[in-house]
Amino acid sequence: MRAFASALPPLLSRVSTAALWISGVGLVLMTLVVGWQVFGRYVLNASPSWTEPGALLLMSWFILLGSAVGVREGNHLGFETALHYAPRPLRRAMLLVTELLVTGFGVGMAWYGGHLAADTWGAKMAGLPISQGADYLPLAVGGALIAIFGLEKLVRLLVLGEEAPLVAPDAEPGEIPAPGERSIPSRAE
């Protein structure tokens, strides 16, 4: 089990990097689409009908993929002060509950997003010649990635004994790193 847990981070690091790149490309594409919409509306006096739904679809992709990467990297919102002040056994329990909740939330997003996509797949999206179900695919994919990354952190916590990147495993209660300073190296270092 330790070998599997040790082999997981490099593989999921590639998945995370790919999701981040897709997210970045989606942000650039959405900016271009919105720029085209403004140009069409105010210069050509003929706003293209596909730009608004297209921009919203791209935004869904980059937000949900970016959120999944944020979960893996520990950049999502959290109440880390309590972790730093908590004694080590309580800190581990808090991290365990957090990762269970994050994983469950991701599973729920993936499950219901998949159902929404399947239920609306037969309808056409207004303004774009694609299925309405495509609107819910980012929810399903982003949720699946959140669940996978949460599960990875859970496995690393339980099997390898690793804690979240912002929590020093040997930190004394009350020991908080300076703002912007990580107490242990991130996975990228």
Results as ranks from 00 to 15, higher is better:
30 M>R: 01
31 T>W: 05
31 T>S: 11
31 T>I: 03
32 L>M: 14
34 V>R: 01
34 V>M: 03
34 V>G: 02
34 V>K: 01
36 W>D: 08
36 W>R: 06
37 Q>A: 15
37 Q>M: 15
38 V>C: 07
40 G>P: 11
40 G>K: 08
41 R>V: 08
42 Y>M: 08
43 V>L: 14
45 N>V: 15
49 S>C: 03
49 S>L: 13
49 S>M: 09
50 W>D: 04
51 T>W: 11
52 E>P: 01
53 P>G: 03
53 P>D: 05
53 P>E: 08
57 L>Y: 00
57 L>F: 02
58 L>I: 02
59 M>N: 07
59 M>T: 02
60 S>Y: 04
60 S>V: 00
60 S>H: 10
61 W>R: 00
62 F>C: 01
63 I>H: 08
63 I>P: 03
64 L>I: 00
66 G>A: 10
66 G>S: 06
67 S>P: 02
67 S>A: 12
67 S>G: 13
68 A>S: 15
68 A>L: 09
69 V>Y: 11
69 V>R: 11
72 R>F: 10
73 E>I: 09
74 G>V: 05
78 G>V: 15
78 G>I: 14
78 G>Q: 05
80 E>K: 07
82 A>G: 05
82 A>Y: 11
84 H>Y: 13
84 H>L: 13
85 Y>A: 02
85 Y>Q: 06
86 A>V: 12
88 R>T: 13
89 P>Y: 14
90 L>D: 05
91 R>Y: 10
92 R>N: 09
94 M>K: 05
96 L>H: 04
98 T>K: 09
100 L>W: 14
102 V>E: 06
102 V>S: 09
103 T>D: 06
103 T>L: 13
103 T>R: 07
105 F>L: 15
109 M>S: 02
109 M>E: 03
111 W>S: 10
111 W>R: 02
